[in-house]
Amino acid sequence: MTTRVEPIQATGGEPVKQHRAWWHRPDAQAAVLVPALALLALPLTGDFSAWLTLTLAGLAMGMMLFIMTSGFTLVFGLMDVLNFGHGAFISLGAFFGFTVLAGLESWRLVDSLWLNLLAFGLAAVAAMIACGLLSWAFERVLVRRVYGNHLMQILITMGGLIVAEQLIYVFWGGEDWPMLKPAAFQGGLQWGDLVFEKYRLLAVVLGLVLFAALMAVFKWTRLGLLIRAGVENREMVESFGYNVRRLFVLVFMAGSALAAMGGVMWGLYDEVITAHLGQSIMITVFIVAIIGGLGSIEGCFIAALMVGLLSNYVGFLAPKLALVSTIGLLVVVLMWRPQGLVPATQGGQ
């Protein structure tokens, strides 16, 4: 939709709104902010090599944030449910992945990219399946009771998060566990003066693949079409005879599985996992979802990248401000667009 078309008078007899150029679309305007932020940071950091390292780190963090936030934002968009229990699946995912990786220790350490990838992949898939199934029970037991009541949702899902954390203490103990990267993803790639950390490259590639896959599902499948329509107007989708509840449970499970994958990736990134990993990330996840526009997957992607980049740049330039930088971004974005970067319910307007 990149061309400007004149108002057409012929068919309906009445003029229609002009088909606006791409730069008028809210998602396109927001997407420009990501390279703009990166370019703005270049003169500030002063050193190209440092800037490149920070940018890669920021993108990697952004991709992981996107993976963790996508499910949270869709669950809100589709059923108006604020699920702070989402963080439980980040923690649980990390611990499931950790356990599987520990069992595959020899594959993780062996000098073979494919066996390393296989170990990582199995850990991620196992965590996703386990958390997907657990989230089904979580939805049945807790979330289903509190439809339509945000305060109750926050309280009861926070409670679920605490219970999940305590269960981690029961099964894995209270200590921090080291979660080491597969051999092939330790260290960096040297290219002249520049160093690219391998695991960050992996995170960026995985994030991009996942975003592309999600967009393809939304654009090309009936399921994706129903999810997008449901985010806009749930009643109307029901009026066409679809079971939106069932659709929601599916999205809830898929979103929790993505949270688990994000947990595994984050655990390997930090190389240490704790039971309150999910709880501490949940704050950032919530901020990313709000900045992006609750319910919007494109907005979530853009916001996650911006938060990732900004945290890394500010952490380097003014470490004391690192904590408040995301809040600052939230404030600025909401002053510009109170509905978030890409408002989910009026994408075409």
């Binding site: 009643e235 994408g347 075409g348």
Partner: peptide
């Protein structure tokens, strides 16, 4: 009218 604004005309019809 309950139109899905961000979906195209054809997508609106496909859902129905």
């Amino acid at each position: 009218m309950g139109i899905f604004a961000s979906l195209t005309v054809s997508e609106n019809l496909r859902i129905a």
